[in-house]
Write a protein that binds this DNA or RNA. Structure first.
Lengths: 192, 192
DNA sequence: TAACGTAGAGAACGCACGTTCTCCCGTCAA
DNA sequence: TTGACGGGAGAACGTGCGTTCTCTACGTTA
């Protein structure tokens, strides 16, 4: 098995176990068992567990935002594209192994003790917010709408994670629709 | 030192340390040192660490909702009372040792492994949501507003926790004001 | 064949920590 | 005074786990 494959398998196992059970309750030995990659190899690829966590969050960030962008790209109308974010959240929340936002969870678990993890989380949330900001600008809506939309999405993620079920996504979508309606009249596109 | 005092001191230390550093990175020995309550006594009061965590969340829940209700009670107008929730969040976020929502953090850290903790978190969030629902009803507003307001508040908490700063509370307040519609509630009442 | 490098399996190590136990002291009843 | 008892300090115990080390097998090259 070459290095790239071993790395992917290690990250596959890390993602499955870290996301499902939390980081601290998963041992390096669990990762060896789930990935088929020996401990020796794991430590060659990632000098310490913390860096495996970092890599897990980073790879997931790329995929998560990629999937979101794909879903959004299927809509034409700029306003619809914003609402598509919440539709996509609803799909995500409905997945059988959904267990909340990986970054919010990781921050709650490790934010206070690992600066590297905290940085990953902040970077991910910043990227998501900027992506939303781009959708808002593309729709010619005031930039001030970005914050509220972002907060609705974050609230939906955290609530769906804690309470289970996809209902928060629908509530957030409806609220977003109302907010967009009010922001309609602005003629100053791309105000930022 | 009688039992009640020991219990309060133990919970004071637990709250300070668990909230500030996360649960798993605080040892029972740290709690002994910070509280002045011996290990023997700690284990008489709480048969296991998990139950100390539970008691910490429960006591904090009572105080947190009490402080919120106090702040809200200072306003007369029913719409203003809803907005007061977000003003109070802004105050909270601005406290120097603010480190996010204790329940969201605890859920991220222990939700997957401790059913007792998960229950505490769900109970707290349910109570907060029901409280908001009461404010919405008192204002004669449709119940469908409760969900969005709750999601805005949750999003503000999680974002303030991750990114630091009180700005999310103001954004959430503004979004809430738009959702409530153009009533008498225009600007900020009271201290700004 | 012999020497060598690589990789996997898993034992070993060191430490942290939840929980329990031991020892000792101060208090109070008789 | 004596003995029982409750409580504090902290050692001890058992376990889990991050990380490293050892042993063995195997393929490659001369």
């Amino acid at each position: 098995m070459d290095s790239a494959t071993a790395r992917e398998q290690a990250l596959d196992a890390a993602e499955k176990l870290f996301y499902g059970r939390g980081v601290q309750s998963v041992g390096m030995d669990d990762l060896r068992g789930a990935s088929g990659v020996s401990l020796k190899r794991l430590y060659q690829l990632f000098p310490a567990k913390e860096q495996l966590v970092e890599a897990y969050l980073e790879r997931r960030d790329v995929r998560w935002r990629g999937l979101l962008a794909e879903a959004v790209a299927r809509r034409e109308d700029p306003r619809e594209r914003i609402l598509a974010v919440f539709d996509w959240l609803a799909e995500w929340f409905g997945e059988p192994d959904f267990r909340g936002c990986a970054w919010i969870n990781a921050y709650g678990e490790l934010g206070a003790t690992s600066e590297r993890v905290a940085r990953q989380v902040r970077a991910h949330k910043r990227a998501f917010r900027e992506y939303l900001g781009g959708l808002v600008a593309d729709a010619g809506l005031p930039d001030a709408l970005t914050g509220p939309l972002f907060l609705l999405a974050e609230g939906a993620m955290v609530t769906a994670g804690i309470s289970g079920g996809a209902a928060p996504a629908a509530e957030a979508r409806e609220a977003a629709r109302l907010l967009l309606g009010r922001g309609r009249s602005s003629g100053r596109a791309g105000a930022g």
